Amino acid sequence: MIILAFFLAHWYLSVLMQTLFLHRYAAHQMFTMSHRWEKVFYVLTFIGQGSSFLSPRAYGIMHRLHHAHADTEQDPHSPQFSKNLFDMMWKTRIFYSEIKTNRDSIPAKFKKGVPNWEWMERFGCRWPVRLAWGTAYTLFYIQFATSPWMFLLLPVHFLMGPIHGAIINWYAHRYGYTNFKVDDTAKNLLPFDFLMMGESYHNNHHKYGGRVNFGGFRWHEFDPAYPLLKVLHGLKIVKLRMGRDEEYM
């Protein structure tokens, strides 16, 4: 029970920070926050993703390119131009690494306004730090696992951030239903998104790239991150840009 609770806590905290900070804030600027709160969210993302910490700056730039060039050869992660899931993940890793190390030739408009706390970007991505997180997960399992099969969950902990990205970038472009006709293959992966905190409503999001609420077009579409953002807005931690329903680019 302890291991299951730990796994679920890591899963949902990681995907929450990915959808709130990396996706809705860094990539789409659906809300604003002070520099102090931005650093708090950086730290929460570092804790939530742990060994698979993703650079908010690189993620934001790469995701903007995805929206601008979805399902074309310029898309950083399109199933249409990959042999399989692992091929797409490898290509995504290379693209991400080029942005992270400033070896890209991406136009400046895609980089405007992305968060960039340079110290945390460097620290969170260092291999000794990633290995320290992985060691901590492993020691926790050694202490509390009650069956050998539980150790099969460890690779998910190690690669939590990329796994969440792969679920949407691969499966939500191949399976699911659509509410809207769009110029790409984006689909709503789950009718009720209990797994990805609203990210599964990918067709909705590709139709209205700046809309804060990813769900809400059908009675069963509930985006759990949206009411949380409303609470954070009410507490003046973030300021939602109300009424946005346009594409980012």
Results as ranks from 00 to 15, higher is better:
Trp117Asn: 12
Trp117Glu: 11
Trp117Ile: 11
Trp117Tyr: 09
Trp117Arg: 06
Glu118Lys: 12
Glu118Cys: 07
Glu118Trp: 07
Glu118Gln: 12
Met120Lys: 04
Met120Gly: 10
Met120Ala: 08
Arg122Pro: 04
Arg122Ala: 10
Arg122Ile: 10
Arg122Phe: 11
Arg122Leu: 11
Arg122Met: 09
Phe123Thr: 02
Phe123Asn: 00
Phe123Ser: 03
Gly124Gln: 01
Gly124Val: 00
Cys125Gly: 10
Cys125Asp: 15
Cys125Arg: 12
Cys125Ile: 11
Arg126Glu: 12
Arg126Gly: 05
Arg126Pro: 03
Arg126Ile: 07
Arg126Gln: 13
Trp127Pro: 02
Trp127Lys: 10
Pro128Arg: 05
Pro128Thr: 05
Pro128Ala: 05
Pro128Cys: 06
Pro128Ile: 05
Pro128Leu: 05
Pro128Gly: 05
Val129Leu: 01
Val129Cys: 02
Val129Asn: 02
Val129Lys: 02
Arg130Thr: 06
Arg130Ile: 13
Leu131Gln: 10
Leu131Tyr: 11
Ala132Phe: 12
Ala132Arg: 07
Ala132Trp: 10
Ala132Thr: 14
Ala132Glu: 10
Trp133Glu: 04
Trp133Ile: 04
Trp133Pro: 03
Trp133Tyr: 15
Gly134Asn: 14
Gly134Met: 15
Gly134Phe: 04
Gly134Gln: 15
Thr135Phe: 14
Thr135Gly: 14
Thr135His: 05
Ala136Glu: 05
Ala136Pro: 00
Ala136Phe: 09
Tyr137Leu: 01
Tyr137Phe: 08
Tyr137Gly: 01
Tyr137Arg: 00
Thr138Tyr: 13
Thr138Phe: 15
Thr138Glu: 03
Thr138Ala: 14
Thr138Lys: 03
Leu139Trp: 11
Leu139Gly: 08
Phe140Glu: 01
Phe140Gly: 02
Phe140Gln: 00
Tyr141Cys: 13
Tyr141Val: 08
Tyr141Thr: 09
Tyr141Glu: 06
Tyr141Trp: 15
Tyr141Leu: 15
Ile142Lys: 08
Ile142Ser: 06
Gln143Met: 12
Gln143Lys: 13
Phe144Ile: 04
Phe144Asp: 04
Phe144Glu: 08
Phe144Lys: 06
Ala145Gly: 01
Ala145Asn: 04
Thr146Tyr: 07
Thr146Val: 12
Ser147His: 15
Pro148Tyr: 00
Pro148Ala: 03
Trp149Ser: 03
Trp149Tyr: 07
Trp149Pro: 00
Trp149Gly: 01
Met150Trp: 12
Met150Val: 07
Met150Gly: 07
Met150Tyr: 09
Phe151Ile: 06
Phe151Thr: 04
Phe151Val: 05
Phe151Cys: 05
